[in-house]
Design a protein around this nucleic acid. Sequence first.
DNA 1: GCAAAAGTGTTAACAGTACACCCATGT
DNA 2: ACATGGGTGTACTGTTAACACTTTTGC
Lengths: 263, 263
Amino acid sequence: MYDLPENYDINKYDRPSVAVDIVVFTARKSPCESYRHLSKPMLSVLMTVRTEPPFKGMLSLPGGFTVRTETIEQTAQRKLLEKTGVSGLPLSLLCNSSALGRDPRGWIISCGYSTLVEFSKVKISEETAGWYDISLDYCETGKLTLTSDSGAVHTMMFRQTGEKNEIIDNGGIAFDHAQIIIKGVAALQNSLKDPDSVFRLLPTEFTLSDLQMTYEAILGRQLLTPNFRRKIAPYVEETGRSETGAGHRPSKLYRAKKRDENF
Amino acid sequence: MYDLPENYDINKYDRPSVAVDIVVFTARKSPCESYRHLSKPMLSVLMTVRTEPPFKGMLSLPGGFTVRTETIEQTAQRKLLEKTGVSGLPLSLLCNSSALGRDPRGWIISCGYSTLVEFSKVKISEETAGWYDISLDYCETGKLTLTSDSGAVHTMMFRQTGEKNEIIDNGGIAFDHAQIIIKGVAALQNSLKDPDSVFRLLPTEFTLSDLQMTYEAILGRQLLTPNFRRKIAPYVEETGRSETGAGHRPSKLYRAKKRDENF
DNA sequence: GCAAAAGTGTTAACAGTACACCCATGT
DNA sequence: ACATGGGTGTACTGTTAACACTTTTGC
């Protein structure tokens, strides 16, 4: 029936378990501190507290094992739906983790993916899952800090050697997930060349200030407003509405501009 | 001994076989046609003719199955050494292929990688393996042609829809390897922003014309020489030697310039 | 009025593009 | 001599970076 070698038995060979781990980014604003000041959006990542060994009690990325009836990306989509209630988000492949002994349960390979989601779309269903604010620091050695809403802090330290990152301190993150998070942030920064990815972090209508502050949160540095607006202008269009109520001039609301897809 | 759930048995779960497929690129020059004309380097990819079902007799990428004692990248390195005699090449992850039914032998996931190698370093050990010249054509719909040294031609057709490529005709390439090759070429083109990758296709000493023609082979279009030389100048340095014998002014030999690694 | 942010204009520096031109060589 | 490629200069253009400045709101 099939074009197969004679006496072929796939079960002769030893096989690994295959899992996915997903770096889910969002941008969220804390409530305003004063009637005058804007509140800056923070870049956040979805993490879960492990309830079972190994690494019980530590932070890990959401994910799970793939099964025969799914592609790896379908597994990631299923896990995303289970944990965030959101489906159909585009996924980017970050890395495959297969270091020997990376999981004490045995031979387990993990495929790391990342995605972006608007904060208000997510309804976190599990007690153990939550958003952790990311703050970046590239002084001497790379530093990436996760802060939970309750104030718990995890600081990862790494050295950037060409393309690879060498982890110096995983900040108490389970498995090799610190590595995957750092790769995810680097990939997110790289993706900023195309503004379409950033729109996925914001509501359909947004102010240019919010957009700029989201860029700044991702890049970990300030941008000059006039230059930012010129650069982004071809990708957005005015909605006609504007946002009032703050103690300063109201800002116009924009939306992403549909752009040429066939070229 | 380990921090594991009680009664944990990894064998309870169904597991896939995991393979690697490697897109190995090189640049090679055909012998000069006349004493005056330069011969242009062609971008080539290493392919093997399948000797066993499935897809017996068709072209496929070099690769193989991963085993418990290796990381996935070590598997790729081992397969590279077996097929080309070269070791220690940096690998780039292209994609994970896991579509249902992609391999009639069963549940097999493939991790696609790409790498670059200087032509003279490779000693192909297997009868079934060989270099296939790549030519590109982006007229209406994407077209990528592989030509063997014996003149056999495989033409793949695809449509670029955003990031994804939709394969229209796989050109008689086994499995989903046409897809992986197209991803590899796209990734190679993207990597040209950093000239270091192109140096891996050339000998340690090269002329700027060879370098430019290699760029042109990868991009599938002509470049303007003065502009190319200015752009590449910070990345190369003169060796002092030059290449004579052709029916025109001799060209200086250059080498890649060591650049600042810590910043 | 005042602080804060929205939003515009102007300039200089830099990178990318296109093209004209001269130089050195083997037959 | 001459065809061929090696190699340089230059003018034009678009993008980026920096900063000065005006406008509009809520208190």
